[in-house]
Amino acid sequence: MNESKPSLLLVDGMALLFRAYFATAMSGQFMINSKGIPTNGVYGFVKHFLTAVSSFNPTHVAVCWDMGSKTFRTEMFDGYKANRPEAPIELVPQFGLVKEVVEAFDVPNIGLEGYEADDCIGTIARKASQDAEVLILTGDQDILQLLDDNISVILLQKGYGNYLVHTTETFYEEKGITPKQMIDLKAFMGDTSDNYPGVKGIGEKTALKLLQQFEHIEGVLENLEQLTKGQRAKIEQDLEMLHLSRQLAEIKCDVPVECPLDLAQFTMNREKVIEKFTEIEFRGLHRFLDFKKEYA
């Protein structure tokens, strides 16, 4: 990382909160405080958040959130994410609480109705990467399409402090395609977690081969006669869904949100954070605050 350049850590808040919640909810550890509020998701979120800040030492930090399940994608395709269950009842009160905790760190919470956190992350990352090194912290591989010269993606692995850091180079080494081609890859493959089908019968292996050979969807469609009979029939049958899936897969990078760097400077006030921890009845998190001795 370029030391003289500012570095902005963009956190996918939902990815961290859900991961933390489910890691403990399975065994019923909801950590209900004296006010009757479950706090397990927020507690784990803070651990993930502070471990990453300590590991990557960014100068600036912001957290992005989904703002409800209705977005421009659900308007385009009724089935989009329709397979996802309602949020568990113990998690619901933690959505507001986690944002209060982020505020206690003087870190901006960013989200916009009608768009997903990914779209906010993409928009801010593109703009900020002109002046800063951008690091995106998430558990979601979809965000790899945003990789660029000054944009890296930190994928959370099992446990705390285990990361897989991707750059444009490592992505190409692993997949043999560019990050931008990942949008077309998902258009062919579909996405079971987001619940859109892509082209039925075309999996990752075939899709990667097609994109390595013909570069993008248009290239494949222009060269259908070179494909096997089976591949051609599948694509022709699902042509409309292929185009729709590409629109669903692409992260929008022109959403009306902004995060000026000066508002995202990470200058944690330790007392303010500890006060919030005490109010929520968090124990054992203070030690995670000691990585930056110069902060008040």
Rank of each mutant, 00 (worst) to 15 (best):
V153N: 03
T123P: 03
I154E: 00
E275S: 14
G111D: 02
Q130H: 04
T123A: 07
H286S: 00
Q237M: 12
P197H: 06
E281K: 04
L155R: 13
Q247W: 00
L156C: 09
A233N: 13
V42M: 08
D148V: 05
L135P: 00
M241N: 10
Y43D: 04
L210Q: 10
L137T: 08
F18P: 08
A233W: 09
K127A: 03
K209Q: 14
I143R: 13
G190D: 01
L239W: 11
T170M: 05
D254Y: 01
D66A: 07
T167W: 00
T123R: 07
I37G: 03
L144K: 07
V11F: 06
L244I: 15
K35W: 08
E218Y: 01
P85N: 13
F214W: 12
L9S: 09
A296Q: 14
D66T: 09
D106T: 10
T71C: 02
E294W: 02
D131H: 06
E90W: 06
I251P: 04
I121E: 08
M76Y: 05
Q157N: 08
S245R: 06
L17H: 02
Q94A: 04
K70G: 05
I154V: 09
C259P: 01
K47A: 12
P58I: 12
K35Y: 09
D290M: 13
I136K: 04
K158P: 06
T51G: 00
Q213T: 15
E113Q: 12
G28F: 10
K205N: 04
E173L: 11
L221E: 11
Y163T: 13
K180Q: 11
L17T: 11
F95T: 09
E133R: 02
Q145W: 04
V153M: 02
L8F: 10
V165S: 07
M1Q: 10
L244D: 05
D12Q: 03
T59P: 01
I124V: 14
L261M: 14
E116C: 07
T74I: 06
K292S: 13
I32H: 08
L17F: 00
T24C: 03
D118F: 02
P93H: 02
P256T: 11
T24P: 00
F188R: 15
I151F: 12
D140N: 11
G198V: 06
E275T: 15
R232K: 15
F105G: 07
A52C: 01
K158N: 14
F22N: 13
K47N: 12
V92Q: 14
I154L: 06
N162T: 13
F56L: 12
Q212W: 01
L10S: 03
F171Y: 14
G13F: 06
L239I: 14
H216N: 15
A52F: 01
A23K: 11
M76G: 01
Q145K: 03
D262T: 11
A23R: 13
I202H: 11
R287V: 15
T278P: 00
G114V: 07
V102S: 08
Y43W: 10
N57G: 15
V273T: 08
D78M: 05
L263G: 02
V153Y: 02
K252F: 07
L261R: 12
E103K: 13
L221F: 07
T178K: 15
Y295P: 00
L289R: 14
M1R: 13
V101C: 05
V61Y: 01
L91A: 03
A52T: 05
